[in-house]
Amino acid sequence: MSRIDETMEFIPVRIAVLTVSDTRVAEDDKSGEVLVSRLLAAGHELADRRILPDERAEIAEQLRAWCEDGAIDVVITTGGTGLTGRDVTVEAHRDVYEKEIDAFGTVFTMVSMNKIGTSAVQSRATGGVANGTYLFALPGSPGACRDAWDEILARQLDFRHRPCNFVEIMPRLDEHKRRK
């Protein structure tokens, strides 16, 4: 079963947080603050934090820039994963992904079902990998960010998590680009 192996050393990862919103500013970015407070409390490093409007090209451009930055291991976005016309974060993520982590959305839906019932079907949370960087798109509500962090990301971004985790395979994410 899933567990933390306390005999192993914790390895902090460098995480960038992007809030996608046409209306939020730093002072009222509750979802971004949930993510930042949790990642710092877990012992990770905040590599960068930004707020961008719901513009697909701008979001994808920022994701690509962070994926090119060797000082960033993980990008978490919040907002823009719903079904309305302005919700384009998932499309921007998919413009950048080399590989999608299909089960991330599935597991997030399972977690959400336990919290909000069938309303979980309205979320399009997603995860993927690009240029050796993990990317996760979460809904814009503080509750959804808490659920995703507490139930999925806190464990998968902890090297000590067993039987496996995202951190232990980080060095191999871009192995296909190396010379043989």
Rank of each mutant, 00 (worst) to 15 (best):
S2D: 06
R3Y: 14
R3P: 00
E6I: 11
T7H: 02
E9P: 06
I11H: 06
V13T: 14
V13Q: 14
A16P: 01
V17Q: 02
L18K: 02
V20T: 15
V20R: 12
S21M: 02
S21K: 02
D22F: 04
D22N: 07
R24H: 09
A26K: 06
D28Y: 03
D29P: 08
V34Q: 00
V34D: 02
V34T: 02
V34E: 03
V36W: 12
S37V: 05
S37R: 14
L39R: 01
L40C: 11
A42R: 05
H44Y: 07
A47M: 01
A47E: 01
D48R: 10
D48A: 15
R49I: 13
R50A: 15
L52F: 08
P53R: 01
A57V: 07
I59V: 09
I59A: 08
R64V: 13
W66H: 05
E68T: 15
I72F: 01
D73Y: 11
I76G: 05
G79W: 09
G80V: 10
G80E: 03
G80N: 07
L83A: 10
T84W: 01
R86H: 12
D87L: 02
T89D: 07
E91W: 07
A92M: 03
A92W: 06
H93R: 03
V96R: 04
E98N: 00
E100I: 02
I101F: 10
D102E: 14
V107E: 03
V107C: 09
T109Q: 14
V111Y: 03
M113K: 04
M113S: 09
I116T: 14
G117E: 03
Q122F: 11
A125M: 10
A125L: 06
G127I: 01
A130S: 10
A130P: 00
Y134N: 07
L135Q: 00
L135A: 03
F136E: 05
F136R: 02
F136D: 04
G140D: 05
G143R: 15
G143I: 14
A144F: 05
D147C: 13
A148R: 13
E151N: 14
A154S: 15
A154H: 15
R155W: 12
Q156N: 09
L157I: 11
P163L: 11
C164K: 05
C164V: 10
C164P: 00
N165L: 03
N165R: 02
N165H: 05
F166V: 04
F166I: 10
V167F: 05
R172K: 06
L173E: 02
L173Q: 00
D174C: 09
H176K: 12
H176D: 11
R179V: 09
R179A: 13
R179Q: 12
